[in-house]
Amino acid sequence: MAKIGVYITGLGETFHQESVEKYATRFRNELSYNSIGAIFEIKTEKIDYQEGKQSTVVSIIEKKDTKENVIYKFYDFKYREILIEKFNKYNILYKNVLLFVLVVKKFPILLKRLFFYNGYNRTGQTFYIFLIFLIISLAILFMIPSAIIAFMALTTKLTEIQLPFKIANIDLTYFSVMFVMPLTTLLLLIIPRSKEIVTSLATEFACVDSYIQYGDQSQLILGNLDLLIEYISETNIDSKIHIHSYSLGSILALDLLYPIGNVPSINTKKSIELFITIGTPYEFIKAYYTNFYTNRCLEMDEKLKWINVYSISDALATNFKKDGTIGESEFGIEGSSLKPININYEISPIQDFSLINFITLYHLKIHQYYWDASTNGQSCMRMVFNKMKEEELF
């Protein structure tokens, strides 16, 4: 019986053109590298697991000695549109105001975490991420007075511009020309496709905050994921399901497996045997949303194996250790006895935080580098595949 994988991508992966087809192709490549005398092909189809909700299904077919067998299937779970649908109607100005407010709201706990770790060891890197959010949101907001000043400059000299461009004896004209415009220009130069990134980032960060803080859209998202698991269980009788999750997708999967004040569905408890997390921001969320992991149902502890892929250089990834070092996990989900099997994946020598890395967004960009954009490039999939074989899960 073929194994089944449910692929839950990160929120930003839609922007970076990742897909279940690419993920499955990388898995297929590892099968080819570890087999002799067999050819592995991919077949893609669309299914409706409920009215109006589709999943892309990628089957990996083994051809050997005139025989064909489906040995692994991937179903993708699409949640981005559900998560951001309330925010899609807002313009870029409103989105950036919202992003600015969210960052300001978090700054007290950000500053607190710099001095009181509370078991979290990457406070400097995460403070840096929020600082980047603040700079990006301010850059767009500062464009408003800059644009007004530029318009006024067409009809008068800058030196003649008076109120309303002075507030509390602060010359906004001088401030805009000397600081705002150069800062905005710098950001536009160093961040390719900045408008798309800002729009996407503001929308997604605001939606994630609402999801974590208030459970916004969580019931609808998790209800759809339950329906997909039900469809798979009924269509592939007695098959075991593996959750393959990346970044925010791992948090959604965690909510399915370890629900808040609820219990997992019967199909979840019966069918899911493996939880794979890649670049999971577990500790990032725990540090700044302190109650998010409390009051969880732990029934899946005895039914799961858990593989966790992380990079020390990744400012968002969790190594489930009490320090920022490579090694075996020391804890799991809050209150749980299940600890993940840790896999460290680095694409370059580990680098300490530096000004150059800050300017180039190094520790944030590393979050995207668990695989190359091309399916022919190396990726963390080899280590995941080998560990699945070692644990007799495939």
Results as ranks from 00 to 15, higher is better:
Tyr79Met: 01
Phe284Leu: 09
Gln50Gly: 03
Ser194His: 12
Tyr345Met: 08
Lys53Ala: 03
Asp226Asn: 04
Asn118Trp: 08
Ile84Ser: 04
Val208Met: 14
Leu187Tyr: 04
Tyr293Glu: 04
Tyr345Phe: 14
Asp209Leu: 11
Gln219Thr: 01
Thr277Val: 07
Asn96Pro: 00
Glu81Met: 09
Leu187His: 03
Thr235Arg: 14
Lys195Trp: 06
Ile136Leu: 15
Asp301Pro: 08
Ser233Tyr: 15
Phe142Asp: 02
Phe115Gln: 09
Ser311Ala: 10
Ala287Ile: 07
Thr14Asp: 06
Ile343Lys: 15
Val70Gly: 02
Ala373Ile: 08
Glu204Cys: 01
Tyr345Cys: 02
Asn169Trp: 14
Met383Pro: 05
Gly12Trp: 12
Leu355His: 14
Ser245Gly: 13
Tyr90Ile: 02
Cys380Tyr: 04
Asn267Phe: 15
Ser313Phe: 01
Asp352Trp: 14
Asn376Glu: 06
Leu102Lys: 12
Asn357Gln: 11
Ser32Val: 08
Ser146Met: 11
Glu62Cys: 07
Val70Tyr: 00
Leu138Thr: 01
Gly12Gln: 07
Leu110His: 05
Ser311Cys: 00
Asn376Tyr: 08
Asp171Cys: 02
His16Glu: 05
Phe358His: 12
Glu160Arg: 00
Ala202Met: 09
Leu228Val: 00
Glu41Ser: 05
Glu30His: 11
Pro264Gln: 04
Thr203Phe: 11
Pro192Ser: 08
Tyr33Ser: 08
Ser218Cys: 07
Asn34Arg: 14
Ile229Gly: 13
Leu257Lys: 14
Ala168Met: 14
Asn344Pro: 05
Ala202His: 09
Gly377Met: 09
Gly215Ala: 05
Asp238Pro: 12
His367Ala: 09
Thr126Ser: 15
Met152Asn: 06
Lys95Gln: 08
Leu134Arg: 10
Tyr79Arg: 04
Ile161Pro: 10
Thr173Asp: 02
Lys286Arg: 13
Lys240Leu: 01
Val309Met: 13
Tyr214Trp: 09
Thr290Val: 03
Phe115Ile: 05
Lys389His: 01
Asn267Gly: 05
Ile39Trp: 07
Pro264Cys: 04
Phe77His: 07
Gln213Leu: 03
Phe205Lys: 12
Leu225Val: 01
Leu254Phe: 13
Lys195His: 05
Leu227Glu: 05
Leu274Cys: 04
Gln17Phe: 06
